[in-house]
Write a protein that binds this DNA or RNA. Structure first.
Lengths: 315, 315
DNA sequence: CAAATACTATCGATAAAATTTATAATTACT
DNA sequence: AGTAATTATAAATTTTATCGATAGTATTTG
């Protein structure tokens, strides 16, 4: 059994086709046929059911493929071990970002980062916090950006910035006349929230230390995007809360509706998180430096109070 | 990079000597030299510092070896995947056993097991419960026998038997006249215990629901073996508690000093434990069947009350 | 201090293997 | 039936792994 054979198996399993797999692995099709046959002989099992079209994995073949993926993944990480030692900044890097951070933060640092570290191939994925936690643990993700703290033993967090919550309060709202708002002003009943599961929503719910918290059925209007919330709010359906960076992008007219909190500003902590195994630490450092540098210009709040995401139902 | 090269690296790292490593891997020494050089060239690093005698790993070499071990371990497990599918019962099997179970249980099932499953190469190690938990998680152990429950999410437990605690009470002791003893009779102050860290000790401490529990300094006489405890007890230093299976092996004269508990018999649960990944399930089943079959004849108590090991300081 | 010892690297030869090109066999599709 | 698509086989070629012999280099020993 060789690592090469295992890679061939993975390629054929992926493409369900020897010819296409051969093209992707840059060898000829007979090479795949023979090497996979050799592996099948050695293990004395059939990995593929060649009678089916397209080709299929046998039952044992599925397990073989799963284990092959483990082996090949571990083998691929050898290069990362070496890169880390050499301080080489390059290679593929998989970054996860939660939905409420992705659209505002990504445009702020992506161009700068790719220019500064051209040898790093960033693969960015929008994921929920739970997906991020499990993917980091299983080494399917090199790092992620999420609201913290997460209280995960095997995940390190490095705070990038503290992003205040800002009230978006339409003219018709009872708080519209106030210049500054306070947490005590908030009534969970008339705040529009993201749909259940977003950690931003969890943060807001934590913010309103209302005893009505458990009356979940009262949240009738929930949306997946802040744009929708703003529109609903304009329709007089209530106020909403936005993350500070998002307020930089709304129209001038809408900015009139923004109301900041009195100090200390309630905020969410946004961090770069990664596995304690700390492979690719160089790239993590590079990302951290780039993002915190870019954000430092955009966010200049002091005196923040951190609202933690809850442990359950976060996105 | 090939799996073979990684195995060579591991061999040289282990023996700190190319020549001996070559003998162990059944190739000639030049083969090792060349293949390891090839790997070093490919990764463009030095794994070994050949100027030191005996040969040493470089800093990066240590990390390479660690990663190589990961890869080779995963590769070795491929055969297990196949064996499991085929229902083949054989191959190497690493079993851990805690010290208070090892000497009595091992002789009871080892002969039967090796006769029934001659193709299984059992490698048995005496380990503390904590060592067992970490080694099972890291796949350095295929299964283990320990006192349960352990409350470990990633470890499965299958109860083998319930082993009652039996009092060993010398003539001079205040309880010597009783035919049956009860937990209420116990005074932690005059019970001889194993040294701190044994989970059997923890079980006994749990048994005596005494408020004096925290006065740890009162346990002055502690030993690592039940034989010593019995001797100390005979010297009039107090009573002690033994696991039932151990009482089958003491002399007739000493058996006079045994006092059983009234029902329900306080007992420890002894289980076969293994990772949830469940590779080598065939062998685990075989072990379970053999041990529970052998023990069924030896232990025939009903009406047991299970005393759990504590989570801290267990062995 | 020189000889012996222990160990690793290098060289050339050889055996083993992986890969390629060419082609046959099989299956699916029209 | 004929064509297209796909996998298997065969023979040739290139590449790689291993070995035996030996050179080089410390380390130890008499």
């Amino acid at each position: 059994m060789t690592i090469t054979q295992l890679k061939y198996v993975l390629a054929v399993a992926e493409h369900q086709n020897f010819t296409k797999a051969a093209e992707n692995t840059f060898v000829t099709q007979p090479t795949l046929s023979m090497q996979i046959q050799k592996l099948e002989d050695e293990l004395d099992i059939l990995i593929f059911d060649r009678s089916k079209k397209p080709i299929e994995l046998t039952d044992i073949g599925k397990k073989i493929v799963s284990q092959a993926r483990n082996i090949v993944n571990e083998a691929d990480r050898m290069q990362d071990v070496v890169d880390q030692q050499k301080g080489f900044i390059g290679g593929e890097f998989k970054l996860g970002i939660i939905p409420t951070i992705m659209p505002t933060l990504l445009p702020m640092f992506l161009r700068t980062f790719t220019k500064r570290y051209p040898k790093v191939q960033l693969k960015i994925e929008e994921l929920t916090t739970d997906e991020i936690i499990s993917k980091i643990s299983e080494n399917h993700l090199d790092a992620a950006i999420a609201a913290t703290p997460l209280y995960q033993e095997k995940i390190r967090e490095r705070a990038l910035y503290y992003e205040p919550f800002v009230g978006y309060i339409p003219k018709s709202h009872r708080l519209a006349e106030k210049k500054e708002i306070e947490t005590a002003d908030l009534d969970i009943e008339d705040i529009l929230l993201l749909e259940d599961g977003h950690c931003f929503r969890d943060g807001v719910v934590n913010l309103c230390k209302s005893p009505k918290l458990h009356a979940d059925q009262s949240f009738q209007l929930e949306s997946g995007s802040f744009e929708t919330l703003i529109k609903l709010s304009n329709e007089g359906l209530g106020m909403t809360l936005l993350p500070y960076l998002h307020t930089l992008e709304i129209s001038e007219k809408q900015k009139d509706n923004l109301r900041y909190f009195a100090k200390p500003h309630p905020s969410r902590e946004v961090s770069l998180i990664y596995s304690t195994s700390e492979l690719k630490l160089q790239i993590i450092n590079a990302l951290y430096d780039t993002i915190s540098g870019v954000v430092r210009g955009a966010i200049a709040f002091q005196d923040v109070e951190i609202i933690s995401p809850t442990k359950k139902n976060r996105k």
